[in-house]
């Protein structure tokens, strides 16, 4: 009546059900652990501030669009003091940490640009202290003008789980201002 095949099928079906129940419980544990974490409430929010901003004229993406004209590019240096250790729990695979510059222009009411990113894969590396760190990516505006703009700088991080939900978190913002462009350090054009 119950041959080997039927027994194997029943065992496999039960295994799949149990496995999915475990996956669901594990997935649900991530947001719950973060929501009720006392360590997160105790830890001060990450502090980030612009240590230096430099505006120069250059071209962005010219490899892909030869018609893209010269534009003002912003180089940013920043200080960071962030303790992200409490964001690690048993279901955290990694934190994707990134610094964001945000500003408004008349044409675009929201401009957000990631200037630096960093992947933290273990709790030992989650204490981030950087001084005058140079940004990896440049700031630019579609209308080609940055000088005189005031914006904000903030730290965000994305909690990536082993299994389950991704969560986006952000720290408090500080001011950042883009100064007048500095002259090119080595000019190829006749002055």
């Amino acid at each position: 009546m119950y041959n080997f095949q039927q027994r194997a099928n029943a065992v496999f079906a039960f295994f799949v059900s149990v496995a999915f129940a475990m996956v669901l419980l594990t997935a649900a544990s991530g947001p719950l652990l973060l929501h009720f974490s006392q360590d997160i409430k105790r830890t001060p929010p990450p502090a980030i501030d612009a240590a230096g901003v430099n505006v120069r004229v250059g071209r962005v993406g010219f490899q892909y669009d030869y018609n893209n004209p010269s534009t003002q590019l912003g180089w940013v240096w920043f200080n960071l003091d962030a303790d992200l250790r409490p964001w690690f729990h048993w279901n955290t695979k990694q934190l994707h940490v990134y610094a964001v510059v945000a500003f408004e222009t008349p044409q675009h009411h929201s401009n957000e640009i990631v200037i630096w990113d960093h992947i933290v894969t273990s709790v030992d590396q989650a204490r981030l202290q950087l001084s005058k760190q140079k940004a990896e990516y440049l700031v630019s505006d579609i209308a080609h003008k940055l000088s005189g703009l005031n914006g904000t700088l903030r730290l965000e991080w994305n909690v990536v789980p082993w299994v389950g939900f991704l969560q986006m978190e952000r720290g408090p913002a500080t001011e950042i201002a883009f100064p007048q462009p500095s002259p090119p350090s080595h000019s190829h054009t006749a002055a």
Partner: peptide, 10 residues
């Protein structure tokens, strides 16, 4: 992952 996002006002 999105690294730049700009929203046109108009």
């Amino acid at each position: 992952r999105v690294t730049e996002a700009r929203t046109e006002t108009k």
